[in-house]
Design a protein around this nucleic acid. Structure first.
Lengths: 120, 120
DNA sequence: CCCTTATATGCGCATTTACACATATATTCT
DNA sequence: AGAATATATGTGTAAATGCGCATATAAGGG
């Protein structure tokens, strides 16, 4: 029950829903998420951690990079339809579409090499 | 997208999940909810309103009573599996079981005729 | 070993949330 | 109309949340 609350809490934030939709496309590192969503490094990292803690994500380390992806096994056991619910519910969102578009132009470099959000 | 956030926000609270599980049993008035969950009138009313605003509930007035029930049509269009997700996820909760047990002994009388929560 | 780089985190602040208390509203009954 | 009752709501408060800033951590390269 507490876990259920935790799961829904993780989903009750626009940034995190955008991240989930992004990761439904492909595995991403923190720097790709921050570029695609045009948000700060802190914000990307913290929200990825939150989704990870709630059981939505898998984490894989590769050198300096933290690579996050949808955890289709763990959570699916308890919430088999949830990912589909999210996908369908976000299907019409322009913001999510824009995020996915920007994801294509993303480079696997961190905040040291990327301009900050919305600074040009 | 904003609506999606709103929906999940409504679900990310233990009290509201307990209420939903209660209403999956039967239509209830505010006073039945407050008795079954052993919570204050304000708390029952506010959380019922929140669930209503998010589209989860239907409201029917009968004299002094506000009768809330699951809105299986409205929300189901966008979140067809969500109710089942909630039901399954809460299946093992002792708290929810207790709520349902207390619901049986509930009287359709308001706070004027019912002792306050946990006062004996 | 030091520098660079990607990510995580301690801290502070502004906003939001949940709730209790008191009170307002609305409906029924006399 | 006035009393009784079920529900809704304004207000204040404590706690939780989201995020930026600065900094810590960890890995790789020279």
């Amino acid at each position: 029950m507490r876990d259920v609350v935790k799961v829904f809490k993780a989903l009750s934030d626009e940034t995190r829903l955008r991240i989930l939709n992004l990761l439904l496309e492909k595995e991403c590192c923190v720097c790709e998420v921050m570029q695609a969503l045009d948000i700060s490094q802190t914000r990307a990292s913290r929200n990825l951690s939150a989704l990870y803690d709630a059981g939505f994500l898998k984490l894989r380390k590769d050198g300096l990079w933290s690579l996050y992806s949808i955890n289709s096994e763990g959570l699916q056991r308890y919430f088999p339809d949830l990912i589909e619910v999210i996908r369908k519910a976000s299907a019409g969102s322009e913001l999510v579409a824009l995020d996915k578009e920007r994801l294509k132009k993303t480079l696997r470099v961190g905040p040291g090499c990327v301009r900050r959000p919305t600074e040009g």
